[in-house]
Amino acid sequence: MKIEEFSSDHLDVLKELMNIAMGNATASIADLLQAFGTMHIPHLTITDMDGLKSQINHTISADEKYYVTKQLFGGIIGGEFIFVMTDESAANLGHYLYDVSQPSDADIMDAVIELTNILSSTIISRLTEELNTKVQFFAPSTQIISGNHIIGQDETLNYHKIIIVSTEMEFQSHKISGYIFILARDETITRLRELIDQKLEELYA
């Protein structure tokens, strides 16, 4: 089965499922922050490494510093969950979660990891639940890096097809927001397609 055979119906389903998953995640974070989150429409692209780089460049400024948390998930479908937060957002989050006016770097780091953890597990769990499968999460790691370092400089696996599911998390009242990228490639794209096919069959039956 070719990856290119991802039809507009497949994309539509995945986008809708991502929307539902994001709804759950927003509610979870809203709970944590005691605030109301604005929902954004998710974007879906199937591209390659260059496409991924250009999409990240498009959303994230190359020279600014960000808290970038990456978490891997694996199972029938596996991939990488990336959450990107500005300095300011991260500081606001640390301030809120740790209830101190000047959160330490470690406090901020821990707060970012905690938030990412909730985001990734809610989004991915919900998404996979809708697709009738399960995934395992691996320990996340956070780095403070500039936008152009989100993707490794030595990345040469350019021939891979990559699916990018991206959206935004936004809590205006707390000035906390971030970008979410879910990346998967090759095998997972094929399996994702198969799972969506089952979903489509139910729908058109």
């Binding site: 929307n19 539902i20 998953a21 994001m22 709804g23 759950n24 927003t26 509610a27 809203a30 109301f36 989150g37 929902m39």
Partner: peptide
């Protein structure tokens, strides 16, 4: 009918 399940919504 929404994915947004926040109470505030």
């Amino acid at each position: 009918v929404s994915a947004d399940i926040q109470t505030q919504a």
